[in-house]
């Protein structure tokens, strides 16, 4: 087999038997993170002092913990208190929790950006603070958050390779398996790198496109 063939077969194996797990884990983790992020930000903006203090603490913890460590805590640690999860679910929850902290920050900064310009206007026409948020600020803030959220997805996708640590057979794990079988790391690693690059590059084009659209809508900076 020449090296091009080796690269192609590695690509095919990774796409067929690894990539779907990468996408599954990243996508579910992303949506878990989105839900958590929304909850966090709702509590921070509209909740009481104790509630938002708790959320802040949670965000500090989740932003400070290495993803691998959190995966170990969930996969190896939780069974000792009676919660046993399989490795794929553990990866989704671990990456989702961390992403929740980051997504809440993305959402919060765009809420602040919109509120700075629109809150007074919304209140001045007689809206309550609640409806100012729900009908004026949040809808705009979500749009403004889109580039950051898509970017966050690429970060989760890259982090999903860390699920290798708990034996999830995603793209990177598959590449390592091929490498170990062939006693040759270069081509399988190149293959998986090309895959990540292709996805990340496409998504960064999406981000640019959204930025362009947002600028048309008057949100450009």
């Amino acid at each position: 087999m020449n090296s091009i063939e080796q690269l192609l077969t590695a690509l095919i194996i990774i796409v067929r038997y690894g990539l779907s797990n990468s996408i599954l884990v990243s996508t579910l983790a992303f949506f878990l993170g989105l839900i958590l992020g929304l909850i966090f930000v709702f509590i921070e903006v509209l909740g009481g002092r104790l509630a938002s203090w708790t959320v802040n603490l949670l965000v500090v913890i989740l932003r400070g913990i290495p993803p691998v460590l959190l995966l170990f805590i969930i996969f190896y640690g939780l069974p000792s208190i009676g919660i046993s999860l399989n490795n794929v679910v553990s990866a989704i929850i671990g990456l989702g929790l961390i992403s929740g902290a980051y997504q809440s920050q993305i959402l919060r900064s765009s809420i602040q950006a919109v509120a700075a310009r629109q809150m007074e206007a919304a209140l001045s026409i007689g809206l309550s603070k609640w409806s100012a948020y729900t009908s004026v600020i949040f809808p705009q803030a979500l749009r403004l958050s889109l580039p950051g959220l898509v970017n966050e997805y690429t970060i989760i996708l890259k982090d999903s390779s860390l699920a290798y640590a708990i034996g999830v057979v995603e793209a990177f794990t598959q590449a390592v398996h091929i490498a170990q079988a062939r006693f040759e790391y270069f081509t399988p690693l190149l293959a998986v790198a090309l895959l990540y690059l292709a996805i990340c590059f496409s998504l960064s084009q999406v981000v640019n496109y959204i930025y362009l659209k947002l600028r048309v809508l008057g949100y450009g900076q």
Binding site: K158, D159, S161, L162, Y164, F172, A175, V176, A179, E184, Y185, F186, L189, V192, A193, Y196, L197, C200, F201, S204
Partner: peptide, 22 residues
């Protein structure tokens, strides 16, 4: 910059540790 930012750090590490000896 694109190459680094478009791939996971662990892939880069494995490249350096396992593929460079080649």
């Amino acid at each position: 910059i694109e190459l680094i930012r478009g791939t996971p750090m662990i892939v880069q590490l494995f490249f350096i540790y396992y593929a460079l000896p080649l």
